[in-house]
Design a protein around this nucleic acid. Structure first.
Lengths: 302, 302
DNA sequence: CGGTAAGTTGAATCTAGTCAAGAAACGTGG
DNA sequence: CCACGTTTCTTGACTAGATTCAACTTACCG
């Protein structure tokens, strides 16, 4: 569907759109609700900003999406960032053969499209997997707005950083965890995300298929299914199709931390990269100190 | 080593450091070469900026590192970004149980520390794996500098985006490629990176151990070694310890493309997540226009 | 030169992918 | 409301590929 509306026009011609967008906001030419103000974006991203005229102007276009609708296509010219306002989106790395890998499942307050800034072309696609809504942030107007609302800029950096951390944690998940652990990590992070949005973090419905989860975790659909079944049979979670109930959070967490391997840690000849305990005598000059059990935000990916 | 020098002080107390840093630059109190100007950063990041007084001020501290020296520790409070000026760094994700994974090998012009913006604490460590040098960019002064040099800010977004793309491509590598393909992707991207910096992209020495490469690629050291041997025996590359010569680039590229699977791609029930075709070549698409539609810069990670 | 770290290679094991069949849920139209 | 086809999910059996364990070779550094 071409979608020849204001929103599409804005995301297609950055520079022109800035003026058009600002004008529309100021003069209120667009129909009610089509645009959102900086203040509303602030609410979405959880930051405070000064209360001046600019902040109240409705400068950002909204865009609603239907289930399955592509919002960003990898390879398209970059003009805008998108902040999820409602619904759920998946970002997908697609190659010409039609195969794809899911890079993330994003919800309210998260950023899409930032991978286009560097080259000027989006590096991944974004597809709505529900009825959704995003705020369109034309990249060109950011510098202008930053003068009026410095907090906006800081927040942009923050949300970009958040996305970077999310993907970094995903690399860790894919690089070090086995199948069952990956699924556990996925459930924990999804649960945490839902909890942060005010939903129950104990029982929820997944919005994606096993196939998509598998693609996201670098596993086959069958393996994901088996992992769900195994966790179910261990009474750690209850699964029925897409309905999930986390019965024993601690047990689920301990799936990430293979204490099973503590015995092996004694051996000087420690294992490869999978689950390895680093003893102090392990690191030589190159791997300096780094002792602390940072343990921090280990919700792994997503 | 505690390193109780100016640099450390700056990275420890953001707000205070701003003044100290600016003052030092203006009055030239610091010894020659300790600070670099915005213009020099511009050169490093390949962008142009206006030519005014501020741009010439030496506002950013430099910091030199020795082999094995940790520059950033995961979990430490975030204050500064670091741009690699010389040498080679690895970023490492360490989890509570002590297992670690290499997230990247970074060289000149690349950004470290951006994962600390979101939470206020660095999410990964950065360790010098050579004699190196970085530019310290205290995050707090960015907004101030952006007024004088808007291009700096845009460039910051760009280099953050670049890092995001790098990690996204890594996720793709880990999620979809087999062992040999991962190693091929690693060699190609490393070769491209060296080429972009003016070194030979055909013959070079690796700066990291098999263990580190394995950690980076989510493989065991032995598997990496076997993959090198296999590529060597196929006369695609010549390997001797850390010295690499790429004999047949096209063959190396086609390693990423398991033509064995083209039959399967026809079925509507497309193969799970493995396999994938990857063309393209030109490295940092930053300068490159990017060829066609999707399929874009698949040099995978690094 | 000798000791240590890094890299190579082989054999056995095990994890996860693949193929295949069946069950359960969903949507649509009669 | 139910029958039907389609999609999604589950489970089993087999296989391919990567890890692990282990022995050995080669480089590196004092």
């Amino acid at each position: 569907m071409p979608e020849p509306d204001m929103t599409a026009a804005i995301s297609r011609h950055g520079a022109v759109a800035v003026g058009a967008c600002l004008t529309a906001g100021i003069h209120g030419q667009a129909h009610e609700g089509s645009y959102v103000s900086v203040r509303e974006v602030a609410r979405l991203l959880h930051f405070d900003c000064a209360d001046n005229a600019m902040v109240s102007r409705k400068v950002f276009a909204r865009r609603q999406t239907r289930d399955g609708e592509p919002l960003i296509r990898a390879g398209d010219a970059f003009h805008s960032l998108y902040i999820v306002r409602a619904g759920c989106f998946k970002t997908v790395h697609t190659d010409f053969s039609g195969s794809e890998q899911v890079l993330g499942f994003l919800m309210s307050g998260e950023l899409m499209g930032a991978d286009g800034i560097d080259t000027g072309y989006y590096n991944s696609s974004a597809i709505s997997i529900d009825i959704g809504e995003v705020v369109v942030v034309p990249f060109a107007i950011l510098a202008r707005l930053a003068d009026e609302c410095p907090a906006l800029e800081a927040s942009l950096y923050r949300v970009m950083s958040h996305e970077l951390v999310r993907v970094q944690n995903m690399v860790w998940t894919l690089g070090t965890l086995g199948a069952e652990s990956r699924v556990a990590a996925f459930l924990l992070s999804w649960s945490a995300k839902l909890g942060a949005l005010g939903y129950s973090c104990r029982a929820f419905n997944l919005r994606m298929t096993r196939q998509e989860i598998g693609s996201y975790l670098g596993l086959s659909m069958e393996t994901v299914s088996r992992a769900f079944s195994a966790l179910h049979n261990a009474d750690i979670i209850h699964v029925s199709q897409r309905s999930i109930e986390i019965v024993d959070v601690d047990a689920l967490r301990s799936e990430l931390d293979p204490t099973t391997a503590i015995e092996a840690s004694r051996s000087p000849r420690l294992a490869s990269n999978r689950i390895r305990i680093v003893t102090d005598d392990d690191r030589h000059a190159r791997n300096a100190p780094l002792p602390i059990g940072l343990a921090g935000r280990q919700l792994a990916s997503a």
